[in-house]
Amino acid sequence: MNTPSNLKYTKSDEWFDPASGAAGITDFAQSQLSDIVFVELLVDEGEDVTVGNAIASVESVKASAEIYAPAAGKVSAVNKGLSDKPETLNSDPFGEGWMIKIEGGSAGEVMDSTEYEKYCEGRTH
């Protein structure tokens, strides 16, 4: 499992990059969902989001999930190409699989990578 140390993590398995404002779902989340076949981004550029707002809906062959904003702020960019290539979320969740960028984002309740790894371990048994 990959958990880049420069990122912050939520209990609902989103990541947030305080440097760039980018957010998405974690490697752990994509592996739990398995093969992702559909992504719908629920927010547009320029919209304000608060922590916990649904920002995307994801469906895999066996599950579906809502993705929530890990930080509050103005949405400065959305990854429009994602809906055509949902499998990107499986192959590169922290890179090409980013979902939105939140400008001036102030993160909600988040963990660092070590805490998050522990949190995930506790759930795999």
Binding site: D35, V37, F38, V61, P86, E87
Partner: peptide
């Protein structure tokens, strides 16, 4: 028939 490729069907 054998087991199905469900990922292919959905993608």
């Amino acid at each position: 028939f054998g087991r199905m490729d469900e990922v292919k069907a959905a993608r």
